[in-house]
Structure formats: structure tokens, C-alpha cells
Design a protein around this nucleic acid. Sequence first.
RNA 1: UGGGACGUCGCCAAGUGGUAAGGCUCUGGGUUUUGAUCUCAGCAUUCGUAGGUUCGAACCCUACCGUCCCAGCCA
Length: 559
Amino acid sequence: MTDIEKPLNFIQKVIEEDLASGKTKQVQTRFPPEPNGYLHIGHAKSICLNFGLAKKYGGQCNLRFDDTNPEKEDIEYVESIKNDVKWLGFEWAGEVKFSSSYFDQLYDWAVYLIKEGKAYVCDLTQEETREYRGNLTEAGKKSPFRERSVEENIDLFARMRDGEFQDGARSLRVKIDMAHGNMQMRDPIIYRIKNMEHHQTGDKWHIYPSYDYAHGQGDAIEGVTHSVCTLEFAEHLPLYNWFIENLPVPAVPRQYEFSRLNVNYLVTSKRKLKQLVDENVVNGWDDPRMPTISGMRRRGYTAQSIRNFIESTGVTRVDGVVDMSQLEFSVREDLNENSPRAMCILRPLKVTLWNVPEENSTEYLVAPNHPQREELGTRTLIFDREIYIDKEDFQEEGNKKFKRLVIGKRVRLRNAYVIEADEAIKDSNGEIIEVKARIIEGTLGNNPEDGIKPKGVIHWVSAVQNVDCEVRLYDRLFNDIAPDAGGKDYMQSLNPDSLEVLTGCKGEVSLQAPSTDIPYQFEREGYYFLDEDSDYDQDLENQKLVFNRTIGLRDTWDK
RNA sequence: UGGGACGUCGCCAAGUGGUAAGGCUCUGGGUUUUGAUCUCAGCAUUCGUAGGUUCGAACCCUACCGUCCCAGCCA
């Protein structure tokens, strides 16, 4: 990167002050996803922030699954989340943590609160609880069960734990203030009855702690110094601190909130992404059109490009929407620097170079793998009398702006000769099926001797020896710049053309054994990454190669 | 109408009393065997609005306007 120092964000400033004052000895953070879906670009921000903070200040970051609600969770998600965090390039401290590991301690602390007269078992139904809570402008009413005796509360709470009651029959609430301006403080529920198995604790529990009750205490148990979360939890801060102050916790963590990442044209809500998967709008969580980490990975986005993007957007408390172009810039920046080049014809049009002798027409040419990075080596290109160019690179009659092949005009074949087109051959429908052209002698590495330079450069592939492949082009999933803003129905703005599959594409022979760790730049086309649907086969006839277009090249050609 | 947070260029985002960084986008020029890359130049007399304090304000004060979050036994 650069040696220009980046200004610190507000959380970094807090940490530097805490370190300077001695309040914090060693920074401890945590990334705390609930395993109820796949991670998406929004989580990448939290991951980069939490792990990045720990790394920057020589501390550690835990990966903690906030698994307090077995209803929505699944072991499939914990595995995918671990995989995604690792892929993004981060390493968590020690073993993976689970909020469920603290259920015993949390239970003991709940009993402690009861004994202190600060928690009570409430028999109000869910509807009654809502009525008693009041609303934004009216104070709530105290629950009639608020003054139960300590003994009765302890007994009832134990019986809740033992599975004696139906789901929702009772709850454990903390006694704070039913008239508090902050709704979170109106005797929040900290334990609810759910007679159901948990993916980590099996059938041990019939009651599960709420997020509010489990999160801060989990932080304290793990010695988290700076608990950073998104802005919607700012409302919970007083409650977070209430527990820390009223419980004999081993440490005092502090919560700081930042605004979540929003990118236009994207939807980032686990619930909504799940709907796209469940209704088969996309082909799974890792569909390359999804803004999930796994989808982006499959599409060809590099971990570095995602990290750079997150870094470029900053950390503040301002609600904003980042432009998609900023993400695209980070992806292109990294890929341009690191992708090997290759030529691939997406929509083949045969060109016969009639002045190349028919006998022994094959010629081997050498091309650099990267135009600016010699150290990346070279590759061999096969040149023949018959080649393919892209249909879009030929017009019978061009115009000043069309810098490609035109009848009677010249064009440079990338890394090869200059050619001039003579004739277009059409089928009975009038469609051009072949072009007759000729090479200009002596133009390999040189300009034509007659001084008539070609207008442009186009890519090509031998029609005799090439690699057949399928190419999948992706466009945005939604046509609306803010698909789900203001409660809009995002399913109404789905882009019907978000996937275009091209078969019979022709790649140069270096693509026979393609790279599986970084996209190629198909010159003049964009960046393309090998999809996992590909099938390798020693027998090339049976090999099936599929490439995903990660992103096109920047295009400043005003058509 | 209760409580909380936030408003600096089209989009991100520094700046927190001394006279508006940077990135993305966009526009124009140069180099180029990728209409890519690279490179040069341009792009806020102005910081939500209106007053006030001050020699001096985006930064301090007051009022107003706008946006977002909170009424799950979700996280």
C-alpha cells in the first residue's frame, strides 16, 4: 500500500486512548455471528474491523457463535462461517467459542439476579407482555408477577429449566423500569422457554437466554475489551451496561457501535438472502450473483479485494450507502495487478487468412502472461490459417469510432500479426458466418512497412487448436438501486437477465489446465474465474470447463 | 407526540476554533500491440438551514429542518 498514514477511525482512537491510559492492557475483540445463515459482504466489514483491530494493536480476536436461539440455527452455518472467516484471511484466537458454552454460568447468574431481587419469573403471555410494555410515547405497566418472592422465583425458574412448562408459558425478566424512555429497559426478558434441541447442547436445556443477557456476559467471560457491533444495538447499550454492573462478572467490556455496510443494488439481510435461496431465485448461497462471501469467492473476488474495499469505506456512525463502483474498483485493482492474461473468444466468428499457406500453417508465438509484470513469465500461443475472433469485433462497414476489423481495413491481432479483411461470407439468412482476410507480412512485433497502421487491436484464438468452454456472465440481481429500501418488495425488482450462459466459447490452449486460485484476465473482455462446476479430464474431449465472469474490464468507450 | 443516533462534493470520508485531505465516480489531455493498465489536469469561496459568540467557526451556543434506529419470549 502507500506510506501515507491513514487517519484513525473513532474506534481506533478509543483503543489508543485506553491503551495509553492503561485502562486496556491487551486488546481483545470478537466476531460474534449467529449461525443462522451464510456470511455476506456486510459481515466482512465486522470481520475486518474486529480482526483488524486486534491485529493492529497486538491483541486477539475470538470467533464466537452467538447461538442463543436454536430455532433458526444450524450446524451447516457454523461450518460455512468458519470457512469464510479463514478464507478472508483471518485467524481467531484459540478454539472457536460458543455462547452456548456459557449457559451454565449464565443460569447461575440469573439465579443470582433473582436472589438480589432483580429478576422475576413472569407468567404474562406474549400478547399481554406486549400490552404491558406500553409504546413509544406511553409508559408501560408493571407485571402483576413482578413482586413474586425470591423462593418462588427460584423454584419456578428451576422448573422452567427442567422442562415442566410449555413454550412461552413463562419467562424470566429483569426488574428495571417499566416507564423507561428506552424500550429495552422495560423489564426485558432474559430467558424464554423453548423445549427444543440445540445444535451444540442437545436436549440439555429447555430455556434459552436472550441476546441481551448472553452477549455482554459472554464478552466479560472472554475478557473482551472492546465489543464492537452495529448501530442498531446502540439502543441496547444501557442494558448491556446494566448487566455488567449488576452481575459479578470477571471483566468490564465496553460496547461501541458503528454503522453497517450498505452497497447500492445489493440486499444484505440474511432473511432476504435466504428467501432468494429457498425460492430458487439463485442456485444456492454460493451463487456467484449473491453478495455472500461464498458467492463472491465462487465468482472470483479475491479476499484481498474484499479487504481493500472494506478498508476504503471507513468506519463511522453515519448511515450511508456505498456505491457499487467502489467495490468494483477494488476488485479490478487487485485482479489487474495479479491476474494472468489469456485470450478467449466468447462469440466465435471464423476468420480465414487466405494468404497463409495451407500446408504447415501452425505457428507458435510467445506472449507475456502480464503486460506490466515480466516476472510472471510467458505462454505459447498457437496461430493458424483459420482463427476465431469475436463477432462483436467485426463490421462490414465501420465508422470512425469502431476500432476493430472492417472490410478493407486493418487491425492488429493481439500478440500476433496485423490483418486486413477482404470479404464477409453470409449464410442464407444474411448472417455473417466467416470472414476472409489476409495477414500483412512482417508485422509480427512490427508495424506495417507501408506505414498504414492498424486502428486497433483485437483478440483471437486458433480455430484448429483451442479449448472449448462455457462462460457464465453475471449482471446485477436487482435492477433497483435500493431493492429493499423503505420496505419495498425486493422480489419485484429482480433482474431477469442476471445470468447469461454462453457455450461453445473458445479459449487459447494455455487454458487447458486452468488456475483454480485466481481469475484470468481474458484480454479485452474482463476477469474470469474457473467455476466448481468444471470437470477436468485427461482426455480433453470429455473435459468441461466453466468460467464465471467476475467482472468486466473498465469500459470508457462511449458507444 | 417518548427515547437515542446522525447530517462535510454524485458516493464513501478526513478535519473538532485559524481559514475545506484522500479515495470512488465523472470530464478533458498524454502513453499504450488490451477502447484495460499507467500518467497529467479539472471537479465544495463551502461544510442540513437560520441566527448568535469570536479578530476569526464545518468545528462553540440557540432554534429549526431532514434521515435512521427502538414497542420479538430475533440477533
